[in-house]
Design a protein around this nucleic acid. Structure first.
Lengths: 179, 179
DNA sequence: ACTTTGACTCAACGCGCGTAGAGTTAAGCT
DNA sequence: AGCTTAACTCTACGCGCGTTGAGTCAAAGT
């Protein structure tokens, strides 16, 4: 037998740690999460987490890597692209957003990401103030995401997914009618 | 002489501590801020901070108390009311927003505050989906505030205050035309 | 002038954290 | 079967934190 079994076990352990880390970072943010707790959730010794990822910061970086985006789609799938799924957000997104106001690196990642969304959307718009309208749109979706998934404003409770999507569609259209 | 001098000194020290705390919480969030650093900024022993405010959490509560809002004004002064001043945010607002994703109490304060804004705005609107449109508006302004003052999206850099205000006015109007 | 008060400092405590290095043990190779 | 490797655990270190209680000393009261 090759070393496949050993490697596979190591890889799967690393994966378990990563998933535990994502949930922990998503729930408590970078500073609130602890290596010890992540290790415990993964059923593993804290030391092993270090051996796999080097440091808490490096683990965080691995944990918040977002899946690559399809930049081709712009305003038609805008809502989905920006993570406003009306359902649940994936843990890596929750982790990144949760820490973006307190961890400089997360803030930077988020800025780069949203800057990119703004540029993409700008290209799909026409008019003098295309970039400005794109900025307002992207920022607005960010706000809705936070208000719904993190702050859980009470007005979201009664709202059906459809009516919400309806209101948002009307708004997105009004701000950023595609050229 | 009465005890006025003593009391006045004590009060002014408390005030200095509170201001240092606001800036520290605004810049680093609840968890990132330290009593020791706040004390040092205020030119005081860490112990004294405890004697004045009891605990870090209590100090935070004192630091993020927002000045009372004028609930009468609604959509006309919506932008200002929601802290989207396009200039600088007051430190207590920055402190509260900075920690709202990582500190449950801050999250709760923010939800209560924004819920109130939504209700107020809803009352100024007409139509079946008034509450939904108010929700979208308030969330949008939250997003703009975060995008501008915390994430500092690059698209804000070139934008003049006027053009920004213009874009936002158009958007607010489109989403929430007053009845 | 003497005592009392209380604003403030000093020194230290215990805790949980990230992290490091040595030890263990089971799988892989020959 | 015996040696080697490496995935994993154990033990412990140092640090900075919030917090405490005793000490200091100048202002207030008498």
């Amino acid at each position: 037998m090759t070393a496949t079994t050993r490697d596979a076990k190591r890889a799967s352990t690393a994966q378990r740690i990563l998933e535990a880390a994502r949930e922990e970072f998503a729930a408590r943010g970078f500073e609130g999460a602890t290596i010890r707790r992540i290790a415990s959730t993964a059923g593993v010794d804290p030391s092993l987490v270090m051996q796999h990822y080097g440091s808490k910061a490096a683990l965080f970086n691995s944990a918040v890597q977002l899946p690559p985006q399809d930049n081709a789609v712009a305003s038609e799938h805008l809502l989905e692209v920006l993570g406003m799924r009306l359902g649940e957000l994936p843990p890596e997104t929750r982790a990144l957003v949760r820490s973006m106001l307190t961890v400089p690196e997360a803030e930077e990642s988020m800025r780069v990401y949203l800057d990119e969304r703004v540029e993409n959307l700008t290209r799909s718009l026409s008019g003098e103030d295309a970039r400005l309208r794109a900025l307002v749109t992207v920022s607005g979706i960010l706000g809705l995401t936070i208000a719904q998934h993190f702050l859980k404003l009470t007005a979201f409770e009664g709202a059906s997914q459809e009516s919400l999507l309806q209101a948002m569609r009307g708004w997105v259209a009004s701000v950023s009618e595609v050229s």
